[in-house]
Structures are given as structure tokens and as C-alpha cells.
Simulated scan of single mutants.
Amino acid sequence: MFDSNSPNSDLLRSILGPLLEDFQYWFGRSRLLLETETLPFLSAEKRADLLARVSTAQQEVSTAQMLLKVTDGQVGIETSVMKPWHDLVGECWQVAVRLRLQESGKNNCD
């Protein structure tokens, strides 16, 4: 039986909660970028695929947050579940960096 008052439970809550919030933050920003910005270097198909994966990841993170909350921190998440989220955030950062580089190149030519 898991003791919810154990130091491990406190550690899990103190690390996992903020980590899930970070994932939500970055997925939200990424979704906004994909839905509102012009990304000429990204085909419509790739853009739609990335947006769909971000939306799915947001739902998965929301579910994990809900489970963490309703179990009072007694549930953990396997790293094998979080690694794809981490990779997806990195992929979204690359798109954002590419957009910024493209925009800064335009501004330098004006």
C-alpha cells in the first residue's frame, strides 16, 4: 500500500505537478503559434499533423494532471509516457526558432 504522507509522495507532487504545468504552458504556446502564425516553411500537412499531436498531448497532460489531483499525488507517470511530450515540445521549439530566424532575416533586409 502506498503511503500518501510519505516523503516520496511529497516529492512526486512537488516535481510532477509543476512539470505537467510546464508541458501545458508550452503546448498552449505551440498551439497558438500553429493556429495563428504564417509558417511558409511548414507544409499544410505537416502543420496539421503537428497541431494534432500537440492537441493530443495537451489532452494527455490534462488527464495526467487530473489523476495526480484526484489521487492526491499518489499516481506517477512513467518516463516512457512523458518522453514523447518532451520530444514534441522540442519539435515545437524548433518551429518557433525557425520562425524567429526567418522574421529577423526579413527585418534586417527592410
Rank of each mutant, 00 (worst) to 15 (best):
E91D: 10
F27I: 08
Q65W: 08
P84K: 00
E45H: 13
V89G: 12
W93Y: 14
V70K: 09
D72W: 04
V81Q: 12
A64M: 14
T36R: 14
I77N: 04
S80P: 10
E21Q: 11
G28T: 10
L68P: 02
A57G: 03
T63E: 10
N108F: 11
L32I: 05
K106F: 11
C92M: 13
M82Y: 01
L101T: 05
G17E: 06
L16H: 00
R31T: 09
V95F: 03
V81T: 15
R29E: 12
L34Q: 05
K46H: 15
S6Y: 06
A44P: 07
A96H: 11
L20Q: 02
Q65A: 10
C109Y: 10
V97L: 12
N107M: 13
L16T: 00
A44M: 07
Q102V: 04
T36Y: 04
G105K: 04
L16M: 10
T79K: 05
R13P: 00
R98Y: 13
L32G: 04
N108K: 11
Q59H: 12
L99Q: 15
D10W: 05
L67S: 12
V97C: 07
N107C: 07
A64N: 05
L20S: 06
V89A: 12
K106V: 15
E78Y: 08
G90T: 09
T63F: 11
S43A: 12
D110H: 13
G17A: 14
D22P: 02
V81S: 12
L12F: 01
E21F: 08
R98E: 15
A48K: 09
S9Y: 01
E78C: 06
E60T: 14
L42N: 04
I77P: 01
V61T: 09
S62M: 06
Q74S: 14
R47P: 08
L99M: 15
L88F: 00
P18T: 00
R100M: 10
D22M: 08
Q94S: 15
N108R: 13
E60P: 01
S30K: 04
D87C: 03
E21K: 13
P84L: 00
T79M: 08
C92H: 09
R98N: 15
D110C: 13
D10A: 09
D87L: 13
T79E: 07
L11H: 06
D72V: 04
Q24W: 06
P7I: 08
V97A: 12
R53C: 04
L16N: 01
V97T: 13
L88H: 00
G17R: 04
F2Y: 15
E21W: 06
G73E: 00
P18L: 02
